[in-house]
Simulated assay, not measured.
Amino acid sequence: MKYEWMDEYFLSKKGALKDFKEEWGATRYLIGGKMFGLQGTDNTNREVITVKCEPLFGQLLRDQHANIIPGYYMNKEHWNSVYLDGEVPDDVLKQMIDMSYGLILKSLSKKMQKEILEGSEVSSK
Results as ranks from 00 to 15, higher is better:
residue 20 F to R: 10
residue 93 L to A: 07
residue 42 D to S: 11
residue 17 L to S: 14
residue 22 E to Y: 02
residue 2 K to W: 05
residue 68 I to H: 00
residue 66 A to S: 10
residue 1 M to S: 14
residue 60 L to V: 09
residue 17 L to T: 13
residue 74 M to L: 12
residue 98 D to Y: 00
residue 42 D to W: 10
residue 107 S to T: 06
residue 78 H to M: 12
residue 22 E to K: 14
residue 79 W to T: 09
residue 55 P to T: 03
residue 91 D to N: 11
residue 60 L to S: 14
residue 12 S to T: 03
residue 62 R to S: 07
residue 23 E to I: 00
residue 91 D to S: 11
residue 95 Q to S: 15
residue 12 S to R: 03
residue 105 L to I: 14
residue 74 M to A: 00
residue 10 F to N: 06
residue 21 K to C: 08
residue 68 I to F: 01
residue 44 T to G: 01
residue 23 E to D: 11
residue 58 G to S: 03
residue 30 L to Q: 14
residue 79 W to H: 06
residue 82 V to H: 08
residue 86 G to C: 02
residue 107 S to G: 10
residue 100 S to N: 04
residue 46 R to A: 15
residue 6 M to D: 03
residue 29 Y to W: 02
residue 76 K to E: 08
residue 10 F to P: 05
residue 67 N to M: 04
residue 100 S to I: 01
residue 30 L to I: 09
residue 87 E to Y: 06
residue 46 R to M: 04
residue 73 Y to T: 15
residue 92 V to K: 00
residue 108 L to D: 14
residue 53 C to F: 04
residue 51 V to C: 07
residue 108 L to Q: 11
residue 88 V to C: 07
residue 121 E to Q: 14
residue 73 Y to D: 09
residue 10 F to V: 01
residue 5 W to Y: 08
residue 6 M to N: 01
residue 58 G to E: 02
residue 46 R to Q: 15
residue 60 L to I: 12
residue 24 W to R: 05
residue 83 Y to D: 15
residue 1 M to E: 08
residue 10 F to A: 04
residue 69 I to A: 05
residue 72 Y to M: 02
residue 121 E to R: 14
residue 28 R to G: 11
residue 78 H to N: 13
residue 121 E to W: 04
residue 31 I to Q: 01
residue 15 G to L: 03
residue 59 Q to P: 06
residue 84 L to Q: 03
residue 122 V to K: 07
residue 15 G to I: 01
residue 121 E to Y: 12
residue 80 N to K: 01
residue 72 Y to I: 10
residue 29 Y to G: 14
residue 59 Q to I: 12
residue 50 T to W: 01
residue 86 G to Q: 02
residue 18 K to A: 09
residue 75 N to V: 13
residue 58 G to R: 02
residue 52 K to P: 10
residue 42 D to T: 13
residue 109 S to A: 08
residue 43 N to A: 13
residue 51 V to S: 08
residue 103 L to P: 02
residue 89 P to T: 13
residue 86 G to I: 04
residue 23 E to T: 04
residue 114 K to D: 15
residue 30 L to S: 12
residue 35 M to G: 08
residue 50 T to I: 13
residue 124 S to H: 14
residue 48 V to I: 15
